[in-house]
Amino acid sequence: MAASWEQRIDEFWATADDAAPETTLRAMRVLVEERGEDDPDALYEWASVHDFLGREAEAVPLYRRALDAGLAAPRRQQAIVQLGSSLRNVGEPGEAVALLSPQEPDAVVGDAAQAFLALALHDAGRPGEALRVALKALAKTLPLYRRAVTAYADELGSR
């Protein structure tokens, strides 16, 4: 039985090599071309490979196209986090903050949006807010001291 497109995407990512960018792009291009030009999943994967190869400036409009085309879960959550990260990396931390701020943790990305939001806030010159966001995400994982770390993080917001 032939592997499905999703299985082949998974296989691609299991062996993707950022040391061979042109080969990596060609391999993903073959998979992407199996789908329509405006297929949100294909657009997301094409954006992701550009991001993976450090070509964030090329990835940003592709992520936006995928989201505008109706990208659905679970890729939607990943695309938002990855777009936020890419925006930060291309010098647009304010846009990253606006995109990532309303994101809630979920089963797909967990608190990843909060981690990248903290980085974007730092880059936007808001280190106190960045620390608060990071500590609040961390506090959820602490079996002891959760309440104390959360309270200290909340205090950072009032200073």
Rank of each mutant, 00 (worst) to 15 (best):
A66N: 08
A107L: 12
V49D: 05
A124W: 02
D41R: 15
P93G: 08
R55P: 07
V81A: 15
A139F: 01
R75D: 12
P40E: 09
N89W: 08
P93E: 06
A98E: 15
D38T: 14
V49S: 03
D123T: 02
P102A: 06
L99K: 09
S86W: 05
G91Y: 07
G70Y: 10
R126I: 10
N89V: 01
P40K: 07
K140M: 02
G91H: 07
E37I: 14
P102E: 12
S85A: 13
R64T: 12
A59R: 01
V49Q: 04
V49M: 07
G110E: 10
Q103A: 13
Y63P: 04
L142G: 03
R132G: 07
R132L: 10
L83M: 06
A134G: 02
G110F: 04
V97F: 00
G110P: 03
A115S: 07
A96L: 07
S101R: 15
P143L: 06
Y44A: 08
L62M: 14
A134E: 02
L99Y: 09
K140P: 00
G125W: 01
R75T: 01
Y44H: 15
A59D: 07
A124D: 15
T141S: 12
A69C: 06
E129I: 05
G125S: 06
L121Q: 12
E58Y: 03
A107V: 10
L62S: 02
D39I: 12
P40G: 11
A137D: 03
G125R: 08
W46D: 12
V81E: 11
H122W: 12
G125H: 05
R88E: 14
A57Q: 09
E37H: 09
D51Y: 14
A115I: 14
A69M: 06
S86C: 13
R64D: 10
A98F: 00
R65V: 02
R132E: 15
R76H: 15
P102I: 11
L62H: 05
G94V: 10
A139I: 02
E129L: 13
E58H: 06
A130F: 06
V81Q: 08
K136G: 02
V109E: 08
V60K: 05
L53S: 02
A73T: 09
Q103H: 08
A137T: 03
A124N: 14
L117I: 04
L138M: 07
A130D: 01
Q103M: 14
A42T: 07
L117M: 05
